[in-house]
Design a protein around this nucleic acid. Structure first.
Length: 764
DNA sequence: GAGTTTGAAACT
DNA sequence: CAGTTTCAAACTC
């Protein structure tokens, strides 16, 4: 079977363009004629431009490459790069493999040669795939083209028998790669393929190609995006299979995917920022994965999370995923919400994706060139993500309507979105539904156009300042003076620091410095605030537990601020002062040094009381916001232990959140209502939402009473929300919980899985 | 936006 | 460990 088929396939190669398949493809897509050239140019240019930068970052690149090679039948990327060599090569297998590589490196793509060559040995490769991914192949066959040829079975044969299939496969692979490459952003030419696939007819080819392509995930994604024709069942099964594949599949399979992802990075990203982007994406990875899985199959998602995204090391994957999610996520979400993806849902998805692709193009372009996020591949990735997310949140605040959608286009926002999605798919669904690409684009542009300064300016308006933005001038952001550095995150664009070394580029320096500091003080990067619940409870002042049940590890040393300003780390961290504090005239609203809490009793005058309450409330409210942001980015935040309780990080004080005061004080008001409003009617707030996404006010409520009234008054509040959330929170959450800003829900768990700062000393 | 205040971090 | 200096955030105007 194979041989004859191969021969057939091989012969047509020279005149591939004349082949029926090719014609068919041309007919299908307007882009067609230009396609080979077009694609080639695009990729080549992109590829060449990016590769250097990509490789500049050994960690990421090498990793990706290695994985890919490893996973992908030892494909030799180097060889693949030389298309000519491949063409000349007589070895069918090698050729095929190389072709694959070439596909990944479009720049070298020669439609005729490659296809032909590939066609020569597609069968072999197919078999390999079959072995590896039987299900996928089946699905492949399931596609219209395949069905005709091989309704039953021989997966490999299906492809082999159909020269079209092979051609398409190659073609598809290229496109898939393109798509993948464009992962981050489907822009320019990259976008074309996608749209092309969107056509009903085109989808067929796409399906075949996608599935046949080594990258299941990619294929999967592509399928989701594009297969209007595919029946719901098929899609569902496919999704599930894909999910399974990823989950249970051999590492080999996944690796290739990663590699492709990397390729996507290369192709798409801005060379200078690829690495950083990768880091960011990594953060998002988990959420996306979850989404993906959940959307696809629901229950399967759980498996996936652990699979790929546990380690920050897989940031590449994350990148890819993120991209995938970006495009696919929305549609999927919608489908998931619907319960079962129906054809209609698919269509919707498709249309959405289509839309997205259109709109995305500009956005992505902008992104690539304009906004540069610098998340590092390595250290502080998660942290950075957190930062970004925080920003995102802020942005959302600024642009409530567009924020969510915007997030989709914005990497930073992506993080938050992903997190949110992960937490509450339903919400996502809503967002997706409401998604207005144009609007999003506008907003995105708005935000992006904002100079760091402007952005910064916007935040102050009452948004939680979850993200770190330093303004260091002399420390080079390599000392604990620098909030970013102290928080374990790289400085980002919004930072106004001068001579900053806290950037991925200087990763080594950062690490070295960090180590140095840690050598001096192992806990230098550890959380400053410790919850009473923490086993550590280093604070020997159990008696002093404040309502918040958290304490600043070392205590403050305030002399003039009376621990009533953010100068005080305790106050800033939302915790009361403890025995460890050496403060003078402590009036910490969260609890004074001597263990007393500011209460009416304590207040000398009404004014004082009011002030205290105000402060406390503000603080709480703020914390709540911070928490929200924190929650959203749990994955990121938690990654580094030090971050958990870092006061400034998650729960910094918003400049002014008095608006929240009313709500907070308004104990009676059900937080649920608030949360619902904010969440867009999302109902679960009692449980998951209360922690993860609930409006800031909700969780703080618990503390408010205690703080303000000595713990009695606001039982109602507690009833409203906190309790549930607390119950829900997993036992392990012991480390979280008590401090206002640190309450966590199930989310935390996932986050925890994320590795902490690389190689940093065990903080804790 | 500039200047001041504050307290942590770093240094001695 | 204490005192001093440096630093950047927080705050004020």
């Amino acid at each position: 079977m194979d041989t004859p088929e191969k021969a057939k396939i091989a012969s047509p190669i020279p005149k591939f363009e004349e082949s029926p398949v090719f014609n068919y493809i041309n007919n299908l897509s307007p882009i067609k004629p230009v396609k080979s050239i077009h694609v080639t140019q695009t990729f080549s240019s992109l590829t060449f431009a990016t590769l250097p930068s990509i490789f500049a970052s050994p960690q990421v690149n090498s990793r990706k490459e290695s994985r890919f090679l490893k996973g992908h039948q030892d494909l030799d990327l180097e060889n693949s790069k030389d298309s000519n060599a491949v063409a000349d090569s007589d070895n069918g297998k090698n050729t095929a493999e190389q072709n694959e590589n070439e596909n990944k490196l479009p720049g070298n793509f020669d439609a005729n040669i490659n296809i032909g060559e590939t066609s020569v040995d597609p069968v072999d490769e197919s078999f390999g795939f079959v072995i590896e991914l039987p299900q996928i192949l089946k699905y492949d066959c399931a596609s219209p083209d395949c069905d005709v040829a091989l309704p039953d079975g021989a997966d490999a044969e299906c492809i082999a028998q159909q020269p079209q299939g092979s051609v398409l496969q190659q073609y598809t692979e290229n496109h898939a790669l393109e798509i993948e490459g464009g992962t981050k952003s489907i822009s320019g030419q990259e976008g074309e393929p996608v749209q092309f696939s969107l056509d009903g007819s085109a989808s067929k080819s796409t399906d075949v190609l996608i599935f046949s392509s080594p990258n299941d995930a990619i294929a999967f994604r592509g399928l989701i995006q594009t297969s209007p024709d595919i029946s719901t069942g098929l899609l569902t099964s496919l999704v599930s299979s894909a999910a399974q594949y990823e989950i249970y599949g051999s590492s080999e399979m996944t690796q290739p995917l990663h590699r492709i992802t990397a390729g996507g990075l290369y192709v798409e990203g801005d060379p200078s920022h690829l690495a950083s982007e990768a880091g960011m994406e990594t953060n998002e990875c988990q959420p996306e994965m979850d989404e993906c899985v959940n959307e696809g199959e629901g229950s399967d998602g759980q498996g996936l999370v652990p699979f790929d995204y546990k380690m920050s090391a897989d940031m590449h994957r994350g990148m890819r995923r993120r991209c995938l999610d970006f495009e696919v996520a929305e549609p999927l979400q919608g489908s998931s919400d619907e319960g079962g993806s129906s054809s209609s849902s698919l269509l919707v998805q498709q249309s959405k994706s289509h839309k997205a692709s259109k709109d995305k193009q500009p956005i992505h372009v902008k992104q690539g060139g304009g906004s540069k996020k610098r998340i590092l591949p390595g250290i502080g990735l998660h942290l950075n993500a957190l930062t970004s997310s925080s920003k995102n949140i802020k942005q959302e605040t600024v642009l409530p309507d567009s924020a969510p959608q915007l997030s989709m286009s914005n990497q930073d926002n992506m993080n938050s979105m992903a997190s949110e999605n992960e937490m509450d798919p339903a919400v996502n669904g809503l967002q997706v539904t409401e998604y207005d690409p144009k609007q999003a684009l506008v907003n995105y542009e708005e935000i992006n156009q904002l100079s760091p300064r402007k952005r910064r300016r916007r935040e102050p308006s009452g948004e939680p300042e979850a993200c770190k933005r330093c303004n260091c001038k002399k420390s080079k952001c390599l000392k604990l003076y620098c909030e970013c550095f102290a928080a374990g995150v790289y400085c980002i664009e919004p930072c106004a620091c001068q001579g900053c070394f806290n950037k991925p580029i200087h990763e080594e320096t950062v690490l070295a410095t960090r180590k140095q500091i840690e050598s001096r003080n192992p806990l230098a990067f550890a959380p400053k605030v410790i919850r009473a619940s923490d086993p550590v409870s280093e604070i020997g002042d159990e008696s002093n537990k404040t309502p918040a049940s958290a304490r600043h590890k070392r205590g403050c040393n305030c002399k003039k601020s009376n621990c009533l300003k953010k100068y005080c780390e305790c106050y800033q961290g939302g915790v009361g002062c403890s025995i460890n504090c050496r403060c003078e005239g402590c009036k910490n609203a969260f609890g004074t040094k001597d263990g007393s809490i500011l209460t009416r009793m304590d207040c000398e005058t009404e004014d004082d009381l009011e002030k205290s309450e105000m402060r406390a409330v503000d603080h709480i409210a703020w914390t709540a916001d911070g928490q929200k942001s924190l929650e959203q980015n749990d994955s990121v935040i938690l990654s580094t232990p030090s971050q958990l309780n870092r006061p400034s990080l998650p729960w910094g004080f918003p400049p002014k959140t008095k608006q929240l005061r009313s709500s907070l004080l308004n104990v009676g008001s059900s937080s649920s209502v608030r949360s619902n409003q904010r969440m867009g009617g999302h109902g679960l707030l009692g449980i998951s939402s209360s922690f993860g996404k609930q409006p800031p006010q909700a969780s703080p409520d618990d503390d408010i009473p205690d703080i303000l009234c000595g713990g009695t008054p606001t039982a109602g509040i507690i009833k409203g929300t906190s309790p549930k959330g607390k119950r829900v929170s997993p036992p392990h959450s012991n480390s979280f919980s008590s401090s206002p800003g640190q309450r966590s829900g199930g989310r935390r768990l996932i986050l925890r899985s994320i590795p902490s700062f690389p190689s940093l000393t065990p903080q804790h």
